[in-house]
């Protein structure tokens, strides 16, 4: 069985394009503005990866939230499809992408849920936030209000995924529209906001692609290292197909739910 698994892993590995292969840990945008001081994979991660002891496909879920038209979908499109178009239609509900990486020769998948910024979708957003390991708070450099709203967005998301301790990123978009001096003036306030949100700060441009790949490599590096640590530090029992059985049980419970006394509504 382990042999079969490692073959599948190898197959997955081969599908990953060169620019999604990560061999060195990506550092933060600004060292002084991140709660995550980690600069390299942990020793255990190096060891486990080289021993080929990783049997499960590593997978992390990330959500992108923020005000209407700050450019959430543009971030995803730039990264996943290498395209940029300033006329995206608004996202209806939630879009979804999976990006495959290969980190230290081990496959890793990042599920990206790109949510709608519109008010009318807020009621359903909760279901999309569930179990997110990364929260990307997007704001628009040219619209300072979108930065102020990040606190509300984060609170809503944390309300759902509170059991986990997600990585939080505060990402300013449309960097290409800012002159350097104005941005430097703004940055003091932004970094303060990031600190209050307990988030790591990044500045990007989906139009030029600046910092986009680095940001996602940073996210992938942190998540990957974290999930390996979780797998091996906590000695949890791993049984193939557990999930399948338990979800079946639930279904059966629903299925066999008894009928008790009908109240006719006529």
């Amino acid at each position: 069985m382990p042999q079969v698994r490692s073959n599948v892993m190898k197959m997955l590995n081969d599908e990953v394009p060169e620019d999604r292969k990560i061999t060195t840990f990506q550092g933060p945008y600004k060292m002084e503005c991140t709660p995550y001081q980690q600069l390299d994979f942990t020793e255990m991660t190096y060891r486990k990866c080289s021993e080929e002891k990783i049997n499960w496909l590593k997978l992390s879920k990330m959500i992108i939230i923020g005000d209407v038209s700050v450019g959430k979908t543009s971030i995803v499109n730039r990264f996943c499809r290498k395209i940029f178009d300033s006329n995206y239609k608004s996202t209806i509900g939630v879009d979804f992408e999976v990006e495959k990486f290969c980190i230290l020769d081990v496959p890793f998948c990042l599920q990206i849920w790109d949510t709608a910024g519109q008010e009318r979708f807020k009621s359903i957003a909760q279901s999309y936030y569930r179990g997110a390991q990364v929260i990307l708070l997007a704001f628009d450099f040219t619209n300072i209000k979108s930065l102020c709203n990040c606190r509300t967005w984060l609170n809503e998301a944390l309300g759902v995924s509170s059991s986990l301790c997600p990585f939080i990123f505060l990402v300013g978009t449309k960097l290409d529209l800012m002159s350097k001096t104005i941005r430097q003036n703004m940055e003091k306030n932004i970094m303060k906001a990031a600190q209050q949100l307990n988030a790591e700060y990044w500045a990007i441009s989906s139009k030029t692609g600046k910092n986009i790949d680095k940001l996602f490599c940073r996210i992938a590096s942190l998540c990957f290292d974290n999930s390996i640590r979780n797998e091996f530090q906590v000695k949890k029992q791993i049984i193939i197909g557990t999930n399948l059985l338990s979800s079946n049980e639930n279904a059966n419970q629903n299925f066999v739910r008894k009928c008790e006394g009908f109240k006719c509504s006529k």
């Binding site: 599948v8 496909l57 949890k236 557990t242 999930n243 399948l244």
Partner: peptide, 24 residues
């Protein structure tokens, strides 16, 4: 479907494994 059980980490509640058709 052995590959089905293979590719996913157990206990991850965002990943729901299921057979298309299954009658007990």
């Amino acid at each position: 479907n052995s590959t089905l059980a293979l590719l996913s980490e157990p206990g991850d509640n965002n990943q729901i494994l299921t057979h298309v058709e299954d009658l007990n």
